[in-house]
Design a protein around this nucleic acid. Structure first.
Lengths: 341, 341
DNA sequence: CTGAAAGCGCTTACAG
DNA sequence: CTGAAAGCGCTTACAG
């Protein structure tokens, strides 16, 4: 049915081995043979069967990406789109295909990865998001299978990973609010089992301590990466007798929820409540008021993850196991309100 | 290195053929053998080598998705994230993996698809977005390779496709504005080579004609699916001596651009200019004012595309070649301003 | 119900 | 510089 290496060999009057060597750019082949074989390949419309090639070469020219369990809701947040955009761009440039997989439970995730790894379907894997103790990481380490983590792992500190310095990022965000004269600053966090939540919390705490500002436990609220979480956090804060005048918010989408709630209650951002978010999604500058946000270079995170993984797959040397993508505070109206004591 | 079917066979004291039959759930195997073999498989941690299986079975349990050329900018628009979310959810549920590929030029796209198809890397392909004459479609048809199109094709009208009724959707949007008393309604379109642009334009024109309303050519502007396009269109409209009082806008993201521009100029939505967009992205209800939008069921589009493709791959009967996902107008403040003549 | 054998399409030492 | 042969890990008629 399709054209095989044997068809080409016959027609070119050479052996299949020779055709194979021409394809792989093997050294010791006469120019004449190369020309001849290539001609026939074109003429016949030959294309290598990837499966056969993989079977013997034990390489697939494909990398896999495991989407977090909540893939269903996942894409509501621009974070993952941006990551994937970076990954697919880079992997395509490097001649690798990208395989996506997911699972709805931890067991399903491990199964999906097992299938990819043991089924020899991919050469390496990109993991998005790290939870505290992740059986997927244990499995990949045990298998000695190449992988990179977007984020970082506490249980497996030496794992190859691409991350932001989230502690510093949150520190910067908090410092910025302090510089505007705020003293009562709250923090809206994400799911507590995510390392990114705790890193950003740490940065916030550090900045507050350093400035000798009081942190009230009720100024710290945990939630999901969803608008609703912001909305709920806001209602909670606004009912406090001593409410904060500014918030550091774990994700812009959550910040939108805060903003919406604040506006509905008739308060104003930034005069009644100043905000700084994270991720700098395109809508941040569109909302009214525009929201200040830490740009964490999401696309770059994905691009670098793919690049690093492919290096690892090829066995090229990797100098740093932990690559940090720089962040940048984008100051906008939501945090430009100076408090005069 | 890894455990093969032969290792299992040896240890279980049967032939490789039998192991293979147990794996594939073949009928005529004694329960005792099945139990024994499964036990050994677990014990040894056996996992089938997908490549070897594909090579002989000629099936990959994988579908491919071709991202539009502009993948770089692509994900800035929620449309693709949502589509992919639908596709990955459904394909995973059906036990298929998802392979993503892209190209930066038409030639590269054809190459990427050729690699997937001729390399027997996938069982079927999902195409996003259709341009007027698409060499990828010609190729797939010629190869008799299963594929579905998200969108529709004029050059290949019988191709399996999942689409909205974009003509009707735009008609509904326009009717809604007419019902508010608007007579001077403009249309901000997308790239003219996309069928979706022309379909929506047609719906707009139909509704206007039917209501015996005049359409001025300067009320129709083409652009990209980007904020900037909306911004530019707005500046253009607002400088017209006889400017429209309402706009149908091809995409919410473009509508945001319009909104931002209008606001900057000191005008108000909806009183100075009413807006209806398409796609109903999450931000539509967050902006101020919230933007009316046609929800086209993007997730559903992706989910159904995957479902239909997998049916086609399996050779199951498909009753309709053109599947239409219903749309729904979400009325919000941006279009709730009644004009009294 | 089960096994031996051929074959899927390729690569790669081993010879020459 | 090139060919014959073995083998990657699986499936599937063909026998029995």
């Amino acid at each position: 049915m399709s054209v095989t290496i044997i068809d080409v060999a016959k027609k070119a009057g050479v052996s299949p081995s020779t055709v194979s060597r021409v394809i792989s750019g093997h050294s010791r082949i006469s120019p004449a043979t190369i020309r001849k074989v290539k001609e026939i390949m074109d003429e016949l419309g030959y294309h290598p069967n990837v499966m056969a090639k993989s079977l013997v070469s034990k390489t697939t020219q494909t990398i896999g990406i495991l989407l977090p369990r909540s893939a269903e809701e996942l894409f509501l947040n621009l974070f993952f789109s941006e990551i994937i955009r970076g990954v697919v761009t880079q992997s395509t440039r490097s001649g690798y295909d990208l395989m996506m997989t997911t699972g709805t439970s931890e067991r399903e995730e491990v199964e999906a990865i097992t299938r990819l790894v043991k089924g020899r379907r991919v050469d390496g894997i990109i993991l998005l998001y790290s939870r505290k103790s992740d059986p997927v990481i244990s499995f990949l380490q045990e298998m000695k299978f190449p992988f990179v983590l977007v984020g970082r792992s506490e249980d497996f500190p030496h794992v190859l990973s691409i991350d932001n310095n989230n502690v510093l990022a949150a520190y910067d965000a908090t410092r910025h609010l302090i510089a505007q004269g705020h003293k009562r600053i709250g923090f809206v966090s994400g799911p507590p089992n995510l390392i990114v939540s705790r890193d950003r919390m740490d940065g916030y705490v550090q900045a507050m301590r350093e400035a000798k500002l009081e942190i009230q436990t009720e100024w710290i609220v945990e939630g999901e990466f969803l608008q609703e979480s912001g909305y709920r956090a806001m209602s909670f804060f606004m009912n406090l007798p001593h409410r904060p005048t500014a918030l550091v918010v774990i994700d812009d989408i959550v910040a939108f929820g805060v903003l919406r709630g604040v506006t509905e209650l008739g308060y104003k951002v930034p005069s009644d409540l100043s905000l700084v978010g994270f991720n700098n999604i395109p809508m941040s500058e569109l909302s009214s008021p525009p929201i200040s946000s830490i740009d964490i270079g999401i696309y770059q995170l994905g691009y670098t993850a793919s690049q690093t993984l492919i290096k690892a797959v090829k066995g090229e040397p990797i100098h740093h196991n932990h690559i940090i993508i720089p962040h940048r505070l984008m100051t906008r109206e939501s945090s430009l309100h100076t408090i005069h004591p």
